[in-house]
Amino acid sequence: GPIILETYRAIADYGKSSKYELNLKTGDLLEIVEKSPNGWWFCQRESQRGWVPASYLEPLEGPDEMEEPEPNYEGELYITTKGYTAAEDDELTLGPGETIEVIHKLLDGWWVVRKGEQTGHYPSMYLRKTGEKREV
């Protein structure tokens, strides 16, 4: 049968920052081709195709029902592959090669991570799973 793609609606205007992205106008309807865990979704709108930030989209049916995974307060061990300097109050600043615990894998690509006493958002594209079990 035909492949039915999910339709999402843009909740804000977005101006693309690199080629292969799409500009968005509030209310635009897009079909989702691929949901990357780094928060960039590959979408199509009429004849155009390109990447869009997932945080600017909501499902057309049931806007409050994003299929977001539950938080895992035990944490999953990941290593930062790249440093990032917090630009917002709720983000963490980390260098490359730091081991952290991922608590919540948000669809917008900004995962909630824990490092010691600190908790905040970090770009998932700068994280790699360690494959180790957390020490209890």
Binding site: S17, N38, G39, P53, M66, P71, G109
Partner: peptide, 22 residues
């Protein structure tokens, strides 16, 4: 190629639209 996602982290949602956070 076009199938490769951008190499920079996606923007955070506009503050007033930010979804509920833990």
């Amino acid at each position: 190629s076009i199938k490769e996602p951008p190499q920079n982290p996606p923007p955070r949602p506009p503050a007033e639209l930010r979804r509920k956070r833990p």
